[in-house]
Amino acid sequence: MILTINCGSSSLKYQLYSADLAEVIASGIIAKIGEAGGYADHKVDDGKTRIVRDIADHQAAFTLMMENLLSPDIGVITEPAQIIAIGHRAVHGGSTFVESVIVDDQVMEGLRACSTFAPLHNPCNIAGIEEAMRLFPGTPNVVVFDTAFHQTVPQHAHVYALPYELCTDHGIRRYGFHGTSCRYVSQAAADILGRPIEALSMVICHLGNGVTIDAVKGGQSVDTSIGFGTFCGMPMGTRAGDFDPAIIFHLVKTLGMSLDEVEAICYKKSGLLGLSGLSNDMREVCEAAAAGNKRCQLAVDVFVYQLRKQIGAYAAAMNGLDALVFTAGIGENSAEIRKLVCSGLGVLGIAIDEDLNQIARNGHPDISAADARVATLVVPTDEERMIATDTLQLTMQRA
């Protein structure tokens, strides 16, 4: 069996596949690690078990995961040795890691070096790998990087107009994220359209608490909205998105804020939460906007406007567009956001059928209007399957 791990700062997501990846045997999430009100949801087939307990740290979370997998009541394995390989998500591989790799000491050293690029994410990913190595000694671990898919972005699109030595000597460039999701969704979209991915120009909108917009031409990433860090590009749940860097100088020099305070604003207090003053959850923001909350309506308007601009820019960058694809939590579930975004994109040949838009999650991925020149799709992402696929391929090659 193949186990996939997605280790965050306060959560652990796992999925267990059959050795041929044909079946998801079990999955789960352990949430609120290190916080009050911790819990674990463990799913097998159509049944879900919730366990409520405080989870002190990641080691305790992994222990609970193993208890669930080995449980005589809800478990699916009888011994850890049944798991033949483990795949991990890592957010940032810098320029060091351009593809998925089997973990060894050198890889771990490289991962730690990349933590300066993603201080909120990589340390958690590393903790997950270390715990897996502790619990499964001798079992191969594979790490799959969100940044790897975007290594094909050409230099003119990923370089910043800073002193060139900063870019070459210190790895300062546009890296892009959610690449594992984008890789899966772009191929799935091509399959739905029944066209070779090499012939398609697509904009992939990964809209969740984190947001990435990707230009994918011929199956390769050619531009992406998130850059060096993980808060630029689109406004997100708590992250600011693009803004004038002069604001940072103003906050520090004029308002007397520390750099730590500014960093907290950019990553944790901005986006939907900062604009709405209510929530980082688009569902709650949309509901409040519909009830007349003006700040929530502003948050929705800003999000939709910035997304339209990004789609239009990428259509121009690729000299045309064949498909617009929505994925992730907001992209897959919010018919309202899809409607608002697409209603302003008729100039690109984008138009959706409102009835199809409402039932997109029920096996109707193509929500295009009959006369639309550009296909609009809703494609559920499956990062775990991509991680499992890479894990299986690399471990088989090593064997």
Rank of each mutant, 00 (worst) to 15 (best):
M1D: 05
L3D: 01
L3C: 05
Y14M: 07
E23P: 00
I25C: 02
S27D: 08
S27V: 01
I29M: 13
I29W: 00
I30W: 06
G37S: 10
G37A: 09
Y39S: 14
H42Q: 09
K43D: 05
D45R: 13
D45C: 04
K48R: 15
V52G: 01
V52I: 09
I55M: 08
Q59E: 15
A60R: 11
T63M: 10
S71A: 14
S71G: 10
I86D: 02
G87K: 08
H88Y: 13
R89M: 09
V91A: 08
G93N: 09
F97Q: 05
V101M: 11
I102A: 15
D104G: 07
S115E: 14
S115M: 08
H121L: 05
I126G: 00
G128R: 07
I129V: 15
L135K: 02
F136K: 03
G138R: 10
N141Y: 05
V142Y: 10
V142Q: 07
V143Y: 03
F145H: 02
A148W: 04
P154A: 13
P154M: 13
H156P: 00
V159R: 08
Y164N: 01
Y164W: 12
C167H: 06
R173F: 01
Y175I: 02
G176Q: 04
H178A: 03
C182M: 13
R183G: 04
Q187W: 07
A188P: 02
I192H: 07
I192P: 00
L193D: 05
E198N: 12
M202W: 06
V203P: 01
H206K: 10
H206V: 10
G208D: 07
G208A: 08
V211Y: 02
D214A: 15
S225A: 13
S225E: 09
I226G: 01
F228M: 12
T230L: 04
G233F: 06
F243E: 04
P245R: 09
I247Q: 06
F249A: 13
V252H: 09
V252R: 10
T254I: 11
G256N: 10
D260V: 06
V262I: 14
A264M: 10
A264P: 00
C266T: 05
S270R: 07
S270H: 09
G271H: 06
G271A: 06
N280Q: 12
R283M: 08
C286P: 04
E287I: 07
A290T: 11
A290L: 12
N293L: 08
R295Q: 15
Q297E: 15
A299Y: 05
V300P: 04
V302G: 05
L307P: 02
R308Y: 08
K309N: 08
M318H: 11
M318Q: 12
A323T: 08
L324T: 04
V325H: 04
E332D: 14
E332W: 08
L340C: 07
V341F: 10
V341Q: 04
L345H: 02
L345R: 01
L348K: 00
G349P: 06
E354A: 12
E354I: 09
N357E: 12
N357Y: 12
Q358H: 13
A360P: 03
R361D: 07
S368L: 10
R373I: 00
E383K: 12
T389D: 11
T391A: 01
L392S: 09
Q393C: 07
T395D: 12
R398M: 13
